[in-house]
Design a protein around this nucleic acid. Structure first.
Lengths: 249, 249
DNA sequence: TAAGCTAGGTGTACGTTGTACACGGTTCTA
DNA sequence: TAGAACCGTGTACAACGTACACCTAGCTTA
C-alpha cells in the first residue's frame, strides 16, 4: 500500500467509499485539511506540524493518520482545496483573460502565502488546480498559436505571479514569524549602510539618496503590465519569432 | 553577543582580525563555507546539515560553530560566496545589459539550485551580491527613468529569472533526491490521465493530444524575450504610463 | 443473538535536526 | 610562569514525522 504510486492520484481525484464497519469517525479528512490550512494561514508552513494540527482539532497527533496518509499528501490536499476557492477565468479577450488569471493567482497567494513556500515539483495536481489552468488556456485558444506556444504564454503568467508572490510571501511570513517588521529589522542592522559608499556602490547610493528605494513601484502591477505588453508583441506579430527549444533541465 | 543585530553585517562585510592567542585553527570559515556549498550543490539544501558538513571536513559537528555563528549565518556566507563567482554586468545598451544580467543569474541558479530554495527575506546581503546588483542598475541609468522605475525594471528581471529558476531547481533537486526521473515519476502515476477527459478539461486534453506538453518551449528563453519586449515598450515610450504605488504587503 | 472483522483514536518510541553547555588541550601575552 | 584566549570534542535537549502495538466501537455474518 505504501508503494502504491497511484495512491495520491486517487486521494485527490476520487472520493472514497465510506466504510461500513467500525466506529463513527469523529474526525474527517476535510476537517484535517481545513484545520491545516488555518494553521498554515496563521503561522506559516514551518509551524504546520502534525502535532500542531492535531492540537487545534483537539485530537492526538496520530489520529490524523487515520484520515490522511502522511504530511506530503496533506499538503497536496491543502493546495487543491485552496485552488477550489478561486474563480475560473471567464472567456473573453486574451489580455483581459490573462490579467484576470494573474489577479486570481495573486489573491490566492495573498490569502495563503504558504503556497509559495512549497515545492511544485512532484506535487500531484488536483482537479481544482487543473480546471483553473484549463480555463486559462481557453482564453488564448483563438489566437492561432501553436499549442506549445499557448502553454508557454500561460505558464509565463503563472510563473511571474509566483515569482513576485514569493517575495511578498517571504516578507509577510518573516514578519509574522519574528514579530519584527521589515523596517525595524533593517533599522536594527544600521551598520550595513556604512558600507554603501559611492565608490563601492555608486548606483545604489544614488538611488538611495534620491529616494528610489523608499517609494517602490508595485512589483505586481509593474511587472504584469510589462509582461502583458511583451506577450502582446508576440501574440499580435504577423510571424512569431522562433524560440529555442528547451536546452536541458 | 547573541543579540547583536549587526553581527551578521560584520560577518559579511568585514574581515575579522586574526586571533593572537590560542592554538592554530585547523579549520577556517572559508573551508566551512566551501564544504557547505559543495554539499548543497551535490545533495540539495535539505541535505545541508551541520553534521553533514562537519563529516565531509572530517571534524565534529560542534567544531563548525567556532568559525560560523550558526546555520543561518552560514547560509548568508554561502549565498554571497556564490554571487562572487558571477561576472558584473558590463556597461552597454540597456537591453544587452539586462540580457547579460539575466543570463548571469540563470547560470548562477543552474550551478547552485539550492539558492532558490532559500528565503530572501531577512537575509543579509553581502558585498558580492550588492556590487552585481549595482552594475545591473548602471545599465539602465541613462534612460531618463526615475530611480524607482530603474529599481522596478531591474527587479522585474531578477524576479523573472528567480521564478523560472525555481521551477527548474525544484525539478533537478527532486530528481537527485529521489533518484527517479521526472518522466518515470509521472509514468508511475498513470491513473492520473484517466481523469483528463475532454468534458472536464477540454483545453488540456486538446493540448495534450497535439503534443503541446511534450515539446515545451524553453521557459527561460521565451519568458526573457517577452519580458524584455515589454520593458522596451515601457522604456522607449515618450511618456511612461503611471504605475500604482505598492498597495500593501 | 453471538462471533468476528474492520476502522478510529491513543500512547510510546525512534531517528534526525540545530545548537547550548561543559570540558580539556594549545598557544600566545603579561 | 601564570593565565587568558581560543580550538575542537562530547553530551544533552526539544521538536519533527511517523512506525507500531493497543483498545474499543459498531457493522456484518453465522
Amino acid at each position: 500500500m505504501k508503494d502504491d504510486r497511484n495512491r495520491s492520484v486517487r486521494l485527490l481525484w476520487e472520493t472514497p467509499a465510506e466504510p461500513s464497519r467500525g466506529p463513527k469517525a469523529a474526525l474527517s479528512q476535510a476537517r484535517v485539511v481545513e484545520a491545516a490550512i488555518k494553521v498554515a494561514d496563521a503561522e506559516g508552513i514551518e509551524a504546520l506540524t502534525m502535532r500542531r494540527v492535531a492540537e487545534t482539532l483537539g485530537f492526538t497527533t496520530m489520529s490524523l493518520y487515520r484520515h490522511v496518509p502522511g504530511k506530503s499528501e496533506l499538503l497536496d490536499l491543502m493546495v487543491d482545496a485552496v485552488w477550489g476557492e478561486t474563480e475560473r477565468t471567464p472567456k473573453g479577450p486574451w489580455r483581459d483573460g490573462l490579467d484576470f488569471y494573474a489577479r486570481q493567482l495573486w489573491s490566492m497567494y495573498r490569502a495563503h502565502p504558504w503556497l509559495l513556500q512549497l515545492t511544485n515539483a512532484r506535487r500531484m495536481p488536483g482537479p481544482n488546480a487543473m480546471t483553473r489552468t484549463d480555463a486559462a488556456f481557453a482564453v488564448v485558444s483563438e489566437l492561432g498559436l501553436k499549442t506549445e506556444e499557448m502553454v508557454a504564454v500561460v505558464t509565463s503568467v503563472g510563473q511571474f505571479v509566483a515569482g513576485v508572490g514569493r517575495t511578498m510571501a517571504d516578507r509577510v511570513l518573516a514578519e509574522r514569524e519574528t514579530g519584527v517588521s521589515e523596517e525595524d529589522w533593517w533599522n536594527d542592522r544600521d551598520e550595513l549602510w556604512e558600507h554603501f559608499t559611492p565608490e563601492r556602490l555608486p548606483m545604489m547610493t544614488h538611488i538611495w539618496n534620491s529616494g528610489g528605494f523608499e517609494r517602490p513601484l508595485d512589483e505586481f502591477e509593474f511587472g504584469l503590465a510589462r509582461l502583458l505588453d511583451g506577450l502582446a508583441v508576440f501574440v499580435e506579430a504577423g510571424e512569431r519569432p522562433p524560440v529555442r527549444p528547451a536546452t536541458c533541465l
